[in-house]
Design a protein around this nucleic acid. Structure first.
Lengths: 210, 210
DNA sequence: AAGTCATGTGACTTCTTGGTCATATTATAC
DNA sequence: GTATAATATGACCAAGAAGTCACATGACTT
């Protein structure tokens, strides 16, 4: 947690520091990010930085909390009560939410993905690991319900399938950014929905000929 | 490429340097790996290091080439002529190969995955990108053949599906390392085959109730 | 006006980094 | 034995890092 002095700052100054930090963390990993560059980029003296934050990690965690808060804004009513709806409706909405968030906050995605993809980093355990586990558990519960309702094949491996659906959530963003997002803005939203539909079809029916 | 002097070294000395480098790159990313620690770890003077390698990157690429060479050893006859076989046979063998490699060379997997998962790193483009693209292209060709043979649904999105199958190749290793590899060695090989079977079922049939 | 306390400030310290280079050692050629 | 070329060596360098600290400034109390 940043120190009290940071939160006492005028909002514009606080924003300037956060923006400089985000720029830095987009460009560099936590280890390679430089406090010197961040203070230069935000126009504050080095000493002030350490009046606001315990250390570099303190700032990093603060930025991560901003990212998480922003992601929360995208949660739809359906996702807040996932157990009340059809399995594929939930998954569709989760994927859609993820893509919308990625479209609106590409910088945040870069920062988040960099950490999420290095499980050997000390900060991974500290910040990400629990969230991934919880996400998998939610999917497992959803799968169980889906099986009870007859939406899902009952002979699947729950843990493995939950893992896979989580992984696809990430994969779909990457595929989208790499192959589709560059095209004409006019078709953007269509593109999102079509891509998600294709992903869901694969998930539901597989690729084997019936 | 390392310099000639490196290849003139007695093999044990060369091996010692390579082992120290692998240890370092397992623990640290390229940027955070320290030449100082590597020379200390391999018992050679700093100056000698720069007699053997242009710079840190030169060493890193050399280690990557060792990893790639090791992976090549696992290629089966089927994989060398993939277009002669049933689609799911190929994919099964690719997944199996990947898991066997991961089981025997966990250090290499750590090093490889760290680079593979950071597309924003300059070395990613230099070392990994082409391989990923080629792998996707092979899968696309395989899918086309599979459709012609009637093994695969003809209405899938080729690019997206190829991307997904590649991604699963990585995902299966991670799932395996995280959930299964720790169990009793006696069941290990069984575990590999069972896990792959489940993955393939999901790929083939999806999770939706028919 | 004087005193107190939170905040602002940047020079400074200590540490580590990747890479160099003058010199020492060894092997090879004649 | 002597000359030449290849290799070995570690002190050294400049750059940059994170974090500290003595002091300056300004706002608020009394």
């Amino acid at each position: 947690m940043p120190k009290e002095t940071f939160f006492n700052l005028p909002p514009e100054k606080r924003a300037k520091i956060e923006e400089a930090a985000i720029r830095e963390f987009v460009e560099y990993s936590f280890d390679n990010a430089s406090v010197n560059r961040i203070v230069k980029g935000s126009g504050i003296p080095k000493g002030s930085f350490y009046q606001y934050f315990e250390d570099k990690k303190d700032l990093y965690k603060h930025i991560m909390s901003l990212i998480i808060a922003k992601k929360m804004e995208y949660l739809t009513p359906v996702m807040k009560n996932p157990f009340d709806h059809d399995f594929f409706v939930i998954v569709r909405e989760m994927y859609e939410t993820g893509l919308n968030f990625a479209r609106d906050n590409p910088d945040f995605v870069v920062i988040g993905n960099r950490l999420r993809s290095d499980p050997s980093h000390a900060l991974f355990k500290e910040i990400i690991e629990d969230n991934i586990d919880k996400s998998n558990q939610v999917f497992e519960q959803l799968l169980i319900l889906g099986i009870e309702r007859g939406e899902i094949r009952p002979d699947i491996d729950l843990g493995l399938t939950a893992h896979l659906i989580s992984a696809l959530n990430v994969e779909i963003s990457e595929y989208y950014q790499k192959h589709i997002a560059k095209k004409d803005d006019y078709f953007y939203d269509d593109g999102v929905l079509v891509t998600i539909g294709k992903f869901l079809d694969l998930l539901r029916f597989g690729i084997g000929k019936a």
